[in-house]
Amino acid sequence: MVVVFRSRDFAPRDRADATRVAMQEQSVPSRVVLENPERVDSLMEVWSYGAASIFRSVMTGYRLQRTPRQVKAGPAEMLAIAVQEINVGYSDQFDTRRVLPIGDLFVIDLNAPYDYLLPRYGSAQCLHVPIDAVGLPPEVVRAAAGRLAASPLHTMMTAHIGELTRQAERLSVDPSASVLGDTSVELVRALLASAYDIDYARGLMAEVLLPRIRAYVRRHLGDADLSPEHIADAHDISPRRLFRLCAEAGFSLEQWIIAERLTGARADLARPELADVPIAAVARRWGFVNNAHFSRRFRDMFGIAPRDWRRIAPREFGAESTQPCGRSRFDEPQAP
Rank of each mutant, 00 (worst) to 15 (best):
L79P: 05
Y90D: 06
R296V: 11
A80I: 02
L187G: 06
R202H: 04
M44A: 04
A159N: 14
F288I: 13
E316G: 03
L105K: 06
I198T: 07
A145W: 05
A335K: 13
V173H: 00
S227H: 10
F317I: 10
G103Y: 12
T60C: 08
E254R: 13
L269E: 04
I237G: 02
Q125D: 13
A52E: 03
Y114K: 11
N290T: 10
E332G: 06
P211D: 11
D331K: 10
W47L: 08
L105A: 10
L187F: 05
S184K: 06
R285F: 00
R261T: 04
P239N: 14
L226F: 09
P314F: 04
P113R: 00
M1W: 01
A150R: 14
L127F: 07
V83A: 01
R6C: 06
R261E: 02
Y200T: 07
S328K: 07
L79Y: 06
R98A: 12
I258A: 13
W286L: 03
F288L: 12
G162I: 06
A275K: 12
F317D: 00
P75H: 04
L226R: 10
M1F: 10
F317T: 05
L253E: 08
R266Q: 10
F5W: 04
R296N: 13
V32P: 10
D223V: 06
L118F: 05
A177W: 05
A149T: 15
E169H: 07
A149M: 12
A143V: 05
S7N: 09
S123F: 00
A124Q: 10
R285H: 12
R66P: 02
G50M: 05
L105V: 11
F294H: 02
V134E: 00
W47N: 14
D109L: 04
S295C: 09
V28T: 15
L180A: 06
D276V: 12
Y62I: 00
A22D: 05
P333M: 02
L117G: 00
G222N: 01
L192N: 03
V208H: 03
G287S: 04
M44P: 07
A145Y: 00
A195D: 03
P336K: 03
R212A: 07
A259D: 09
L118W: 01
G250M: 10
A201Y: 05
A80R: 14
E35T: 15
G146A: 11
F55Q: 09
T19G: 05
F288T: 12
